[in-house]
Amino acid sequence: MQIFVKTLTGKTITLEVEPSDTIENVKAKIQDKEGIPPDQQRLIFAGKQLEDGRTLSDYNIQKDSTLHLVLR
C-alpha cells in the first residue's frame, strides 16, 4: 500500500509499505529515499509519536495515510 510522509519543509515522500511493516522498517525506507538516518527520525501520526517496534497496523495506519516526519 502507499503512504505519504510529510517533512517539515513541506516536502511529501511517497512510500510503498505493508500494514505489517514496523515503524523501524518505514524509517529505513525513508533513509533509502532521503538519506536521513533512522535515529534522527521521529514519525508522528494522529498526534502520536510512533514507536520503532510497533507496526503500521498497530496504529491503524491505512493506505494513503500521511505521517509527519520530525528530525531530532
Rank of each mutant, 00 (worst) to 15 (best):
K29V: 07
L67Y: 01
K63F: 08
E18S: 08
L43K: 00
I30W: 01
Q41S: 07
E16M: 08
R54Q: 15
D32F: 15
L15V: 12
K33G: 11
F4Y: 07
L43I: 14
T14P: 08
M1R: 03
P37E: 11
G53M: 07
R54V: 11
F45K: 05
E24N: 01
D64K: 02
I3G: 00
I61N: 00
K29R: 06
L67I: 10
Y59P: 00
K63E: 11
I13G: 02
D39T: 13
I3Q: 00
Q49K: 12
E16W: 07
L50G: 01
S57N: 08
I13P: 00
E51W: 02
L15R: 00
V26P: 00
T66F: 03
R42G: 13
S57Q: 07
D21Y: 06
L67A: 04
V17N: 03
A28R: 12
Y59D: 02
K48V: 15
I44R: 04
K6R: 08
I44W: 13
H68F: 03
D21A: 09
L43G: 00
F45L: 09
E51G: 02
V70K: 09
N25W: 13
K6T: 06
K63N: 11
E51S: 05
P19K: 04
D39Q: 06
P38S: 11
I44Y: 06
L50D: 00
A46W: 03
F45G: 04
D52G: 10
I13T: 08
T55A: 09
A46G: 13
P38R: 15
L43R: 00
Q2P: 13
K11E: 12
L69F: 09
M1S: 10
E34I: 05
A28D: 15
Q49I: 05
E51A: 04
T7M: 10
N25Y: 03
L50Q: 01
Q40M: 03
S57A: 09
Q2T: 14
P19Q: 07
L56G: 00
L69T: 04
K11V: 15
D21Q: 08
L69G: 01
F45V: 10
M1K: 03
V17F: 05
K11H: 04
I23L: 08
E18Q: 03
K33Q: 12
L15K: 00
Y59E: 15
L43F: 10
L8D: 05
I13K: 01
Q41D: 02
V17P: 02
L43Y: 03
T66P: 15
L56E: 00
D21W: 02
P19H: 10
K48G: 14
T55R: 14
V26G: 00
Q40H: 12
G35T: 03
D64I: 02
Q62L: 10
E34Q: 08
Q2Y: 05
T55L: 08
L50I: 09
S20L: 12
E51K: 02
P38A: 13
L67M: 05
D52M: 01
G10R: 02
G53Q: 11
M1F: 09
Q41N: 09
I3L: 07
V17R: 01
G10V: 08
T66K: 01
K29A: 05
I3Y: 01
L8T: 14
I61W: 01
A46K: 02
V5Q: 00
P37S: 11
E24M: 08
L71S: 12
T14D: 14
T14K: 06
P19M: 06
E16P: 03
Q40I: 03
K48S: 13
V5W: 01
G10K: 03
S20I: 12
A46D: 13
S20V: 13
Q2I: 15
L43Q: 00
Q40T: 10
K27Q: 14
Q31H: 08
Q49P: 10
L8R: 10
A46M: 11
V26K: 00
L50R: 00
R72G: 12
T14N: 14
V70H: 13
Y59I: 05
L67E: 01
V70W: 10
M1G: 07
S57H: 14
D39S: 07
Q49D: 12
D52R: 02
P38I: 13
T12Q: 07
E51N: 05
G10M: 09
L43S: 00
T7S: 11
N25T: 05
T9F: 02
Q41G: 10
E34W: 06
L43P: 01
E18V: 11
T9R: 05
E34A: 05
R72E: 15
Q2N: 09
D39G: 12
I30N: 01
R42W: 15
K29W: 03
V70I: 04
G10T: 08
R54F: 08
I44K: 14
R54L: 02
V17M: 10
L56W: 02
Q31I: 11
I23S: 02
L69N: 01
I30P: 00
D39A: 10
E18F: 05
Q62M: 11
D39P: 10
S20T: 07
